[in-house]
Simulated assay, not measured.
Amino acid sequence: MRRAIVEFNLPLFGLKNVTLSESHALIKGTRGNYTVQLGSGVVHQEGGTMLNILPVHSQSRGKLFLPFVDEDPKTAEIMSKIVLLAEDKKIKDPFILDQIR
């Protein structure tokens, strides 16, 4: 289901540097290449290094996570990681930048 949701959302976000392979999203960023496991949300940089990108869940947010179609916060987390890494040149978080350099 998540694969279908990601596949549907990629064109909506204009992400042309993301492909899907079985249970992974393969991302070609400007700072590196990454994979996001669609079941767990685990992120690896090319070469096998795992990246720790932790979600910050908002309690004030409602139960609907548009445009993610389902109410599962894990789907929103995975889609957010894909968008973040697909546009990695815009990352400003020093913790994430230290990991991908």
Rank of each mutant, 00 (worst) to 15 (best):
V42E: 15
M50K: 14
N33K: 15
Q45L: 09
N33I: 01
N17Y: 06
K89T: 11
A4I: 11
Q59R: 01
T30M: 08
E46T: 04
L20A: 08
L15I: 09
T19H: 03
N17P: 04
P73L: 11
R101D: 02
K28W: 01
K89P: 07
G62K: 00
M50C: 02
V6Q: 02
H44V: 02
L85G: 02
F65R: 00
K90N: 13
V36R: 00
D88V: 14
N9A: 15
H44E: 06
L84D: 10
N52F: 09
G14S: 07
E46M: 05
S40V: 11
L54S: 10
N33W: 01
V56F: 01
T35I: 13
L66I: 09
V83C: 07
G29S: 07
L10D: 06
V43D: 10
H57P: 05
G39P: 04
G62A: 07
R3Q: 11
L10W: 05
S60F: 00
M1V: 09
D72H: 05
P94D: 15
V56R: 03
P55T: 01
G47Q: 03
I78R: 05
L26V: 15
S80T: 12
L66R: 00
Q99G: 10
P73S: 08
G14T: 08
P11W: 05
D70H: 02
M50A: 12
I100H: 12
L51M: 07
N17A: 09
Y34L: 09
D98K: 15
D98R: 15
S58Q: 02
N9L: 15
K28Q: 11
L15V: 08
A4R: 14
I100R: 13
T75L: 08
Q37Y: 12
H24E: 13
L51V: 02
V83P: 09
K28G: 01
N52T: 13
L54A: 13
G47V: 07
G41N: 14
G62Q: 02
G14H: 08
V18H: 05
Q99V: 09
R101M: 09
F8P: 00
M1D: 13
T19R: 12
V36C: 07
H57N: 03
L15K: 08
F13G: 08
K28N: 11
H44R: 13
D93G: 04
G39E: 13
V6D: 06
D70T: 14
E87C: 14
S58A: 07
I27S: 04
L15M: 12
L38S: 06
I5G: 03
H24N: 10
E77Y: 09
E71G: 04
G48D: 07
E22V: 07
D93R: 15
Q99S: 08
P11G: 04
V43I: 15
L12Y: 13
G39N: 11
S21Y: 02
L10K: 01
K74C: 03
Y34D: 00
L15P: 10
D70V: 15
A86G: 13
S21F: 05
Q45K: 15
K90F: 03
L15A: 05
I5Y: 03
V6M: 07
F8G: 06
L38W: 09
D72R: 04
E46Q: 14
S80Q: 13
S80M: 05
